[in-house]
Write a protein that binds this DNA or RNA. Sequence first.
DNA 1: CTGAAAGCGCTTACAG
DNA 2: CTGAAAGCGCTTACAG
Lengths: 334, 334
Amino acid sequence: MKQRPTILDVAKEAGVSKSTVSLVLQGSSSVKEETRKSVRQAMTEIGYVYNRSAATLRSASSGLIGLVINDLRNPFFTEFAALFQMELAKAGFATVLANSDEDPKLQSQMISSLVEHGVSGFIISPSYGEEEATLAVLDAANTPTLQVFRSLERAEGTYPFLAPDYLLGGRLAAEHLIAQGCQTIAFLGGLEGRPVTQERMQGYLSVLEEHGLEPVILTGQATRAFGKSLAATLKEEFPHVDGAICFNDLVALGVLSACPDLGMTPGFDLRVVGFDDIEDGQDSYPPLTTISCDIPGFASSTANQIVAWIKNGVVPPSTARSPVRLVIRASSGA
Amino acid sequence: MKQRPTILDVAKEAGVSKSTVSLVLQGSSSVKEETRKSVRQAMTEIGYVYNRSAATLRSASSGLIGLVINDLRNPFFTEFAALFQMELAKAGFATVLANSDEDPKLQSQMISSLVEHGVSGFIISPSYGEEEATLAVLDAANTPTLQVFRSLERAEGTYPFLAPDYLLGGRLAAEHLIAQGCQTIAFLGGLEGRPVTQERMQGYLSVLEEHGLEPVILTGQATRAFGKSLAATLKEEFPHVDGAICFNDLVALGVLSACPDLGMTPGFDLRVVGFDDIEDGQDSYPPLTTISCDIPGFASSTANQIVAWIKNGVVPPSTARSPVRLVIRASSGA
DNA sequence: CTGAAAGCGCTTACAG
DNA sequence: CTGAAAGCGCTTACAG
């Protein structure tokens, strides 16, 4: 367990001053190629590892970015987190992933822990409720912060917000089911009053209105379990419903998995559309028609924006919407 | 964007020396309660935030733990990561979550980035292949490192390994299917030659041998998609198979979702058992019988061990197995 | 292009 | 119980 070598050791080994070593570390162009090489070699020879804490202390930029997600167990967010992290790694930043688990208390705790660790920026998909604590620590941190997918009410404007065009997604889903000949289309799942639910529902409502159709709305948890229970509710209380737009794919997959026991054939008796395009939807029975939010594109765009903000001070627009598209599979009977 | 206050500002505000502030920060018992209070109050008044980079530089312990996972998109690992992170937060450590995505190159890169950031310990579920680079950077890091779920071949012994009792799991699954009356039981999925596959399969094989039954083994990717394709293979080439033990739940869920189109009734024509007990298996059709690895217990045990190692130098045993149990649901026809 | 010096915000002995 | 001083490993002007 001997001490790790420092730039001083490297300097000694390479026969230069420690400033020169530091310049090599930063890739400065004012060091001769030859010198650079010998320094690099000295580093590998003595097993030097860069100490970012020291660098951070002096230069105030850690190269760490905090990604705080409301529900990391939802595959949609997992997918985003995985892609985002890889994207950032390319830009030389490390990602600290934290799961606030829909708990605003946990969220503010985690954020303040990340601030202590000196993160250079935040990407947050916030948990709802008790916004004060979270906003207080974020304000005190005074660091580039981007909201994704969801936005805190009081933070609109202060922290730029980037999300898929949920409203358009709702419209596309509704138009598709109408084109498939559905007469009565229900909107299933998603917590009442939440902005994301509102937007997806609004797209659905406006299309139904344009076609003179009556809406059927059954909100609730965005989970498989709730989706399963909804299928039974539909069968018993709303047997005339022949199309369902689900708040997200989890709800939709729950509905699909409940159908066999209820004697319903999804894609035939009941045409189902989800939202998010998580991978599981490709391998469900039947495969799930859904609204894709282009997560890879969303992740790279988010990564680019936060990096541009940190490095060059380019503040993203206060609100931006990314494109969505309909992905047609068998669950809607196509 | 004014500078963040430092302990010097706090000291001035509270009318004490900065050493005293530092002692308060560390919860030293040698500070009068009264002093402590006034210092704490001064902190909140001027909006002080602790700078861990500075502390790390001086004391060489960052309070950061790196969790490097081979496939974060698999819900099994996501679940573990989420629980582990919460457990560590309780102990005052922050978790840096990284996804190596089954890519050993990415893995060694991420580890060295984490080392630069000064993590105090590693938990690694390694990606296989090209072990040299990963081991080299880990050796250089010289920091407490625990392997979970999987172990690098060359690292047995050097880095303690903690995993569920896969072999017993394979046995429990096989015994259950035999008790259910299955005559021909197949083992589906899992990459050939991987230790985890070997162990699960070994449990299955030994039970079959004890009962004089012939094994049927179809290895491959541990994904839903592969599970789906296996169901068709079974139907065409192995119609006599009436029980299936899947490498993991993803494969099992893939098999289940393929059954309807093949005219098979899971739990009846084909009794299916998975492995891992991911949440999706509770809401599949039919619900999935599986081997539970008690992820919450595993996560907290892992967290405790790494913390004890870091704080008190307690090195975990070089290999340990955690209990597994059979969870019976409808897919095995019970 | 390279060297000597100061300083980032803490913690750590060491006096008192 | 509290204060003055040194130092962790870097980066940053500033000379040369």
